[in-house]
Amino acid sequence: MRTGNGGRRMGEINGHTVLFLFFGILACLFSLAVVFSANVVRMAFYLILALAATSGLHFLAGADFVGTMQLVLYVGGTLVLLVFGVMLTAQNPFISLRTAGGDWIVAALVGGILLVILVPVAFQIGLPPQDAGDIEGLTQREAVASSEPVSVPTATRIGLGLLGVPGDDVSGYLLPFEIISIHLLVVLVGAAYLARAKRKVVVRQESQNSAGS
């Protein structure tokens, strides 16, 4: 249906469009599947697919480093952690917790309002300005968007930006980078402490009990 619609103007359908439709529709579908699935393990699975499709979109937008980072950190790291958590806590009564009807109504309301706000904004921002002076910009944009997605090397410039070396289209980010490094370290220690504190207490109580008796 979609390709048929575009068939009238054949030159505009290219590899980028096809791939975008593929990844974009996948990302949307699987995010909705996360919402409407009741089983928490399946939710995790759909989330994996949604995030992987998003990383495909990042690649299409020319952000290859971010796309790969998404795969490594998000899909490979965070989600493995999440699936781990799901498996640790997934016992029959908790695998599918039903949502009350009232919650659905409130959520649908919130979601609907958000969507009503966000989609028109997307149209306003994304479409080229209607001024006559911008026609040149429009054609330029069309020309660029209808070429094959090019892989512009971004990794080097991003790395330099993170080291605080400003480039022509990036500012220096040394301080945020350091803050985030420290933050990660703190989180690592904190998470390890949180996850094992309980067990320690139990062991101590047991040993006290056995000493007392």
């Binding site: 505009e12 290219n14 980028h16 469009t17 975008f20 974009g24 990302a27 949307c28 995010s31 909705l32 996360v34 919402v35 949604a50 998003t54 979109l57 299409l60 937008a61 959520a107 649908a108 919130v110 979601g111 958000l114 969507l115 966000l118 989609v119 904004v121 997307a122 149209f123 921002i125 994304g126 479409l127 944009r141 069309e142 968007a145 209808s146």
Partner: peptide
């Protein structure tokens, strides 16, 4: 041709799905 709007709409759908979730 695929432009900013397309990406923003996918982003909006994901955002709303997350909020509802």
């Amino acid at each position: 041709p695929v432009g900013l709007t397309h990406y923003l709409i996918v982003g909006a759908v994901m955002f709303v799905a997350g909020a509802v979730c």
